[in-house]
């Protein structure tokens, strides 16, 4: 606890600095409402239930998109790593779309899927798919071939080698890739809701901004930041647990 307090002390300083700058009028309070005012707005959002309902809507869509992307990505990545023609078929597509910011597809997805949940879920799916494919592919490719040979000579079938040896051996790289995917999940979750949504945290941010409710807007941004941070920490803790066999 002491360590954590020490590590995150700069955040306290930042909040203080924020408060002082805003109160002193260096930056207008309209543009940067004081931290204390933002906190009060946050409390209001919690009490009204707006935060909970919109947060649930966002995270549900994001989680579904993420899980689908991990499932499909693992399948495609494994196909690429294990079957040459799958690799030849998919790799060029993955490479071409690699530099494309997936948020550029938001208007297109709006046309395809409309304003409902599907459009946002699909965008999160797209954003997470690539890191999931690449992590699986690279992870499986990097597995020492001798591990598979060992398993085969111990009586494992080819399929068992993939499931029981290659995937566990690739887990460190897989988890690294999924951590990236998790960050993309938040990115696409918020950016898609900014443009096409009737609820969600991104929608709240945009809406409060349009209304000029800046304390509420800042409060929602802080919530998204905190959620992203907590998700990342949680993921790291899970990774450490799964990889406890590492030195």
């Amino acid at each position: 606890m002491v360590r954590a307090a020490y590590t995150y002390f700069p955040l306290v300083l930042l909040a203080l600095l924020w408060e002082v700058i805003s109160r002193s009028g260096v930056i207008s309070q309209d543009m940067l409402p004081p931290f204390s005012v933002v906190m009060r707005a946050l409390w209001g959002l919690i009490q009204s239930g707006d935060l909970l309902s919109n947060g649930t809507a966002s995270l549900t869509r994001a989680a579904i998109g993420f899980v689908l992307a991990v499932g499909v990505g693992a399948l495609l990545g494994a196909g690429m790593a294990l079957i040459p023609w799958v690799y030849r078929g998919i790799d060029p597509i993955v490479q071409i779309f690699y530099p494309l910011p997936k948020s550029a597809l938001i208007p297109l997805v709006l046309v395809w899927f409309g304003l409902g949940d599907t459009s946002k879920t699909f965008l999160v799916f797209l954003g997470c798919l690539q890191p999931a494919i690449l992590a699986t592919y690279n992870g499986l490719r990097g597995v020492d071939v001798l591990l598979g040979w060992s398993a085969r000579s111990l009586g494992a079938t080819r399929f068992q080698v993939v499931r029981e040896v290659m995937f566990p051996a690739a887990l460190p790289q897989l988890l690294t890739g999924l951590r990236t995917a998790l960050a993309f999940m938040f990115l696409l979750m918020v950016s898609s809701e900014l443009v096409i949504a009737t609820n969600g945290l991104g929608y709240l941010i945009g809406n409060f901004g349009d209304q000029g409710s800046y304390p509420e807007m800042f409060a929602t941004i802080l919530v998204v930041t905190a959620l992203g941070f907590l998700a990342d920490r949680g993921f790291l803790a899970l990774s450490d647990h799964l990889l406890r066999w590492r030195p």
């Binding site: 001798l146 591990l147 040979w149 060992s150 000579s153 111990l154 009586g155 566990p168 051996a169 066999w245």
Partner: peptide, 20 residues
């Protein structure tokens, strides 16, 4: 024609399953 448990192998670099 393929590996089998009638022929066990030991490698220079052990090839143990590190997660087990």
């Amino acid at each position: 024609s393929e590996p089998g448990p009638d022929r066990g192998i030991v490698f220079q670099n052990f090839a143990l399953f590190p997660w087990k």
